[in-house]
């Protein structure tokens, strides 16, 4: 920790006692998968809602040897991602990357990278509302009791309500999951597209909610099941067209408005994944080399 230029701050901004406090919470969270551990969330040099929970978790686990990747909505170059990356660069001087496979530590808001994560990696989620039961039960004392006693009928009330209102389970993000057959957990605000990736993931998944002062975790290779009904099984979103830039058909797509005449395209939300596919020669309908794209579609 000595070869770190900015001596005005401790390594990774937080003081060592705070990091220990967070690590204790993390250890408990890993020991009880899906259980929300209260922790003494600190004031961070940014507003709540910008990922103060995720940043505290990252600060508590990051070491000088780590390689850090930060994404927001799947993208490495949005404002939030860039500023958090800069923050850690400045306070830890660790190496940063956009490459999923190269990162040892990934902080994310909203998405899980398309490239499968591997053993030894850590994925840190920024969480706005950790309590999955909050939607229907405003009393914290009651939701804690419901978790303690495994009374999760209410979770299905929410899904029931979705089907009766929309004809299908319309919840597309913050879709509740059962972790290791015990606790029901809110992966908020991750889209349900990514829920299957959480199941049996080789990487360690850590969740931090700064404003709500909660930490929870999914240890590697843990069973994560999305809740559903027998006659309305869990499904993930599908798009009718492939990515307009890399031609991928299996990734999560963002809609991009091109002009004010209704022009739009769908592209991978995982910017690094899309870029590396394009570098490998894949292309889509809006690629600079559209001719090549149409050739690929024809194949």
């Amino acid at each position: 920790m000595s070869n770190f230029e900015n001596t005005a701050y401790n390594f990774a901004y937080l003081d060592e006692q705070t990091k220990r406090m967070i690590r204790r919470a993390l250890l408990k969270a890993v020991a009880i998968p899906g259980y929300q551990v209260p922790f003494a969330s600190r004031e961070m040099p940014m507003p709540y809602g910008w990922g103060t929970g995720g940043i505290q978790v990252t600060a508590a686990v990051i070491g000088p040897e780590d390689v850090l990747k930060v994404i927001d909505q799947g993208s490495d170059d949005t404002t939030n991602a860039v500023s958090i990356r800069n923050f850690f660069q400045k306070t830890t001087n660790v190496e940063t990357t956009e490459e999923t496979a190269k990162a040892s530590l990934i902080q994310t808001r909203h998405r899980i990278p398309e490239t499968p994560l591997t053993d030894g990696q850590i994925l840190v989620y920024q969480v706005p509302i950790p309590e999955p039961l909050r939607f229907l039960e405003p009393r914290e004392t009651e939701t804690r009791k419901m978790h303690a006693l495994e009374e999760y009928g209410l979770m299905h009330v929410k899904l029931y309500e979705d089907i009766s209102r929309h004809g299908d389970i319309a919840t597309t993000y913050a879709y509740p999951v059962n972790v290791a057959g015990r606790y029901v957990m809110d992966p908020s605000p991750t889209p349900k597209f990514d829920n299957p990736k959480m199941n049996n993931m080789p990487a360690l998944q850590l969740f931090g909610a700064g404003r709500e002062k909660r930490i929870y975790a999914i240890p590697p290779y843990t069973e994560v099941v999305s809740l559903d009904f027998e006659d309305y099984p869990f499904t993930i979103q599908k798009w009718e067209e492939p990515c307009a830039l890399c031609g991928e058909t299996e990734s999560f797509l963002d809609e991009v408005i091109l002009d004010d005449a209704g022009g739009r395209m769908f592209v991978c939300s995982d910017s690094h994944y899309c870029k590396s596919r394009q570098e490998q020669g894949h292309s889509g309908s809006q690629s600079p080399d559209a001719e090549k794209a149409s050739r690929e579609v024809a194949e």
Binding site: G153, L154, V157, Y160, E161
Partner: peptide, 13 residues
């Protein structure tokens, strides 16, 4: 939540 969900809650429970 709807009337149907209110009635169904105990069953889902």
């Amino acid at each position: 939540v709807s009337a149907g969900a209110n009635i169904g809650e105990r069953l889902m429970g």
